[in-house]
Design a protein around this nucleic acid. Structure first.
Lengths: 249, 249
DNA sequence: AAATCATTGTGTAAAAATAACACTTTACAA
DNA sequence: TTGTAAAGTGTTATTTTTACACAATGATTT
C-alpha cells in the first residue's frame, strides 16, 4: 500500500501501477473475526434498563455480557445485529442504530475480535423473557458492575450516545408503549438524562413541537386522576425536515 | 450461540454450559478483512476540501478514492488511521475521529471488506503534497463525483457528521492556522454549513463563549484593514465541562 | 496628501425561547 | 364524604437570538 510497508506484496498499491486482480488484493489482507454487540435499552419502573446475559466464557463466569454474536460471512452488520435482537427478544421492528466499533487487540481473551456496538431501544412490555433463557435479565443501568470483556466501556459509550441522541431525535418513544402519558414521557427523559425537569415547561415544549396526537384515551389502573394518552406522530415528523443551526460548545 | 443457529458448533454458547477455551471459540468465527478509510478535510480559498487519491484498482481506473489501508494484525483501528494519515500527509497530531463502519458485502469488488471510516481535519497549509504522490489532490467537497467503491457514501456520512459536530464541538480550529481572524473562522463555518451568517452575531457568539485568546497580532498581507488574530483556548475549554440539556427535534 | 476602497469593529431594539413558579381539577380509595 | 395523589393549566422575568447600519482603519490609488 505504501513504499516502505513491510507487509507489502505484489498486489499492494504502487504509484503508477494499477491492480487488476482485486480479489487477489483482498486476499492479501489480514482477516479479523467480527462480532456485533447490542446494548438493548428498556424502560421499566421509571428506570432505564439494559438487557444482559451471563457470560458463557468460563473466565467471565460471574460477569454479565451484552448480547452479541459473530457476523456471518457476507452478512451486513446491521443484519447481524437485528438477528441477535430477534433471537434474544423475539422482537422484530426494533429500533437499532450503529454506535461505534471497538478494536482493542486484547479486548477478547480468545484473541483479537473486533466488535461493532449497536444501540437498541424497545418497549420492555412487548418483550417476554424466554423461560429457557433464564440467564437473560434486565438490569438497572445505574447498578451495573462486573461486565465481561470491555462491555462496560461499550455500554458507557452507548449510554452517552443515547443521552445526547434523545435530545435531538424522537427515539425515546421506542421505549414506551404506543400510547403514553406525558408523565411517562417526562419520567423517561428524567431517567435517561438523570435530571429533574419542570413539569409545565416539559409539557409546553412537547405540545409546541406539535407531534403528539391526542388519542382521546386516558390512563387506566392508576390510583389517582388518569392522564391523557398520546401517540407520537412519526409520519408528520419525518416530513418535517428540521434545519439545524446553532453553534454551541 | 443460540439453539437454532445453523452454524452452531462445539464452542458455541449454550444455556448452562461454559466455554473454557476462548481461543478455540474465537477461531471458530468467520474472519473478515478490515480497512480504515480517512475522510481528510482541509480548508482553502474559503472552500472545504477533501484529500483524495486516484484509485489503484484497474476497474476504478478514473475514480477517486479515500486514503485507506488494511488494519494490521493486532493494530488498533485508530492507530491504523493515524498511520495512513502520517504516511500520506507526513503530519502527526492530526485531529481524527471514528465515524462509522461500512459492511456491505459487495462494497469492494475483491470480496467482502469491512471498512471503518474516520474523519480527519488538518490545516492544509501545514501539509506539503509529496511530489512522488502526484495522484494525491485536494478536491472541493462540492465538486466531487466519480468516487471508487462506496466512497461517496462514506464521504457523505463524514460530511454530515462534520456539519453536526462542528456546531457542538470546537473542531473547526483544526482546519485553520493556529492564529486566525474572526473572518476566517466565519468563512469556515459558512463553508461547512453552507449557510450565510450575520457577522456581528457571529462575533458576539464567539466572544461570549470566551474561549478566544486575543493574540494582540493582526492579519498581514490583506489589502485592507487587517483583523485581529485569535487563538482558541483549548485548555480552558477542556476544563469547562458544559452541561448539555435541551430537548429539540 | 487626498481620496477611494474593502473590510474591521461595534450596539441596540425587537422577538423568541427558556426558566421559574402555585393553584384548581379530577378520579380513585378509604 | 373526605382525603389523596397526580393532572392540568398561565404568567412573568430572564435569557437568547435575530435583525440591522454606520464609523474607524489601513492599504491602494490618484
Amino acid at each position: 500500500m505504501k513504499k516502505d510497508d513491510p507487509v507489502m506484496n505484489e498486489n499492494s498499491q504502487m504509484t503508477g501501477s494499477l491492480i487488476s486482480d482485486a480479489r487477489k488484493l483482498v486476499q492479501s489482507y489480514p482477516r479479523v473475526p467480527i462480532t456485533v454487540d447490542c446494548v438493548i435499552f428498556g424502560f421499566d419502573e421509571n428506570e432505564l434498563k439494559i438487557l444482559l446475559i451471563r457470560s458463557d466464557l468460563e473466565m467471565f463466569r460471574d460477569k454479565w455480557s451484552l448480547l452479541g454474536d459473530f457476523a456471518g460471512d457476507n452478512e451486513l452488520l446491521d443484519d447481524a445485529a437485528y438477528r441477535v435482537l430477534k433471537e434474544r427478544t423475539g422482537m422484530d421492528d426494533v429500533y437499532l442504530e450503529q454506535v461505534k466499533t471497538f478494536s482493542r487487540p486484547d479486548r477478547h481473551p480468545g484473541g483479537r475480535v473486533l466488535t461493532v456496538a449497536y444501540c437498541s431501544l424497545l418497549n420492555i412490555e412487548h418483550h417476554q423473557l424466554k423461560k429457557m433463557d433464564n440467564e437473560l435479565h434486565w438490569h438497572s443501568v445505574k447498578n451495573i458492575t462486573d461486565m465481561a470483556f470491555d462491555h462496560q466501556e461499550i455500554m458507557d459509550a452507548c449510554y452517552a450516545w443515547l443521552q445526547k441522541r434523545i435530545q435531538e431525535h424522537p427515539l425515546g418513544f421506542n421505549l414506551l408503549p404506543e400510547k403514553f402519558s406525558l408523565r411517562e414521557l417526562q419520567n423517561l427523559y428524567e431517567a435517561i438524562l438523570d435530571i429533574k425537569m419542570d413539569r409545565r415547561n416539559f409539557r409546553k415544549k412537547f405540545f409546541a413541537m406539535d407531534f403528539l396526537i391526542d388519542t382521546g384515551e386516558y390512563e387506566d389502573d392508576v390510583p389517582h386522576r388518569p392522564g391523557k394518552l398520546y401517540q407520537f406522530d412519526f409520519p408528520k415528523y419525518s416530513q418535517t425536515k428540521k434545519k439545524w443551526s446553532g453553534i454551541d460548545f
